[in-house]
Structures are given as structure tokens and as C-alpha cells.
């Protein structure tokens, strides 16, 4: 398996993602410049967190028009696995590869803290190693993570099982208190209808070693690796 980590001007979590994959999981990675037009032989593409183009206009609005995003869209349309983390999630929504939008946090504050996520779907490529209802402890770090979609879209996300993660309490309850940013229905991560593109606000790469305070984030990367290996076999 080969993972590409896309680097836009202003991306800041690229090295952390590379550390999680290469140093912790021993998977080969390649940094992909935002000007590249060909993803080559990659199996997994990660759009990491950060502030691409300074979040000017809207988070992800400018990055969406870079050359690499055409290649990412082609890759996704061919069924390739794409993971958008935080700003990467925002970019995938701007590119209409994922539904909804991410508004300013309801508190109007930047939130950097550990949260709990309940795994709602374990048949997504990024959660095959998880069981439904499993609670992952992973940090968030964002000012615009307040998930919004119109009522019709929300219902179709629910019906199609595209809501992959929700913010929850430590014992897995979905409560307003467990929601750090005002997201509708406590949504923390959604997939596309096909299930090969996932976006989430929390940072799994920052929860990849006990030294960092936890390693629950590895479940997401390991799931992608296992899903790809399963296809290869």
C-alpha cells in the first residue's frame, strides 16, 4: 500500500500524518504537492489538517481549485480511498466530494481538546477494524467544525449510513454536552454514498501513540490499510 499526503500552502498536519503512517504503522508515504496532476500508484490519499490558503474566503474554498484536486476527484470517482482530516474535510466538502458544510463553531471559539467519537458505521473502509458503537478518544483542533446540511441531505445521510462518527460522552451517549462545536446531530465525520471518501474534524494522527495521550486514532488508519489489503487479496 502507498499513501499520499497532500500538502497545500498552509497545511500543517502533513508531517503528523506521515509520522502516524510511516513511523508508527510502517506504511510507505509520499508527500503530494498541490500542483501535482497525477497521483501515480497511490492507494490512499490523505488531505491533512491546517489552514490551506489562510482559510481565506472560506475554509478549503481556494485549495479546492488547485491542480491536485482534479486528480483527487478522479481518484475518488474511481473508488480510491480518500481521507480528509479537519481542513481536509472542509476541502472535500468545497469540492462537493462530501455533503454538507462546516460552519463556525457555535461557541465562536477555536476548540483544541480531546473528544469522544462513537463509531456509527463499521462497514466504511476507514472503520472496518472498529465495532459499531465503539468509542474512540481523539483530539479536535478547529474553529469551523460545526457540521451543517439541509434536512433532506441529513435524512439521506442517515438512511444511507453515511454518518460515520458522532461526538459522544465517554460511555457513548450522544448528548448536547458532548458536542464541542454545535454540529447538527453531533456529526463528527461523514462518508460519501460509495463509502470510499471520509471526512472528519478530529485528528486521528494526533492520537497515534500513548505518548501523545492515546492511540485510538490508529484504528482509522489501520482500517484503511486492512480494507485495501482485503481488496488486494
Amino acid at each position: 500500500m502507498k499513501t499520499g499526503i497532500v500538502v497545500f500552502p498552509g497545511t500543517w498536519s502533513d508531517r503528523d500524518c506521515a509520522h502516524a503512517l510511516l513511523e508508527v504503522l510502517g506504511e510507505p508515504v509520499r508527500f503530494v504537492d498541490y500542483r501535482e496532476r497525477d497521483l501515480g500508484d497511490l492507494n490512499l490519499v490523505i488531505l491533512p489538517g491546517g489552514f490551506s490558503y489562510g482559510d481565506y474566503l472560506r475554509c478549503g474554498a481556494i485549495a479546492r481549485f488547485t491542480p491536485v484536486m482534479n486528480a483527487v476527484a478522479d481518484f475518488a470517482n474511481r473508488g480510491g480511498l480518500v481521507l480528509g482530516i479537519c481542513n481536509g474535510f472542509q476541502i472535500l466538502q468545497e469540492a462537493r466530494l462530501l455533503p454538507g458544510a462546516l460552519l463556525r463553531n457555535a461557541s465562536c471559539e477555536f476548540r483544541c481538546e480531546w473528544v469522544q467519537l462513537r463509531v456509527e458505521q463499521s462497514d466504511c473502509a476507514f472503520t472496518v477494524d472498529c465495532r459499531p458503537g465503539q468509542v474512540l478518544r481523539i483530539p479536535i483542533s478547529h474553529g469551523e467544525g460545526n457540521f451543517f446540511a439541509d434536512p433532506h441531505t441529513l435524512e439521506s445521510l442517515e438512511a444511507n449510513g453515511q454518518i460515520v462518527f458522532r461526538y459522544c460522552t465517554a460511555d457513548g451517549r450522544i448528548t448536547p454536552e458532548a458536542n464541542p462545536n454545535g454540529s447538527l446531530r453531533n456529526i463528527a465525520g461523514v462518508a460519501n454514498a460509495r463509502g470510499n471518501v471520509l471526512g472528519l474534524m478530529p485528528h486521528p494522527e494526533r492520537a497515534c501513540e500513548p505518548l501523545l495521550g492515546g492511540d485510538d486514532g490508529l484504528a482509522i488508519f489501520r482500517s484503511a490499510i486492512h480494507a485495501l489489503n482485503r481488496v488486494a487479496v
Binding site: 460552519l103 463556525r104 463553531n105 461557541s107 451543517f148 439541509d150 454545535g182
Partner: peptide, 13 residues
């Protein structure tokens, strides 16, 4: 502007 149905935390603040 945000659509009327979209909550506007900055406006509320």
C-alpha cells in the same frame, strides 16, 4: 450571507 435557515453564531455574538 448565511442562508436564513443556517445558524449564525457570529451574528448572535
Amino acid at each position: 450571507t448565511l442562508k436564513p435557515v443556517v445558524n449564525d453564531p457570529a451574528g448572535l455574538t
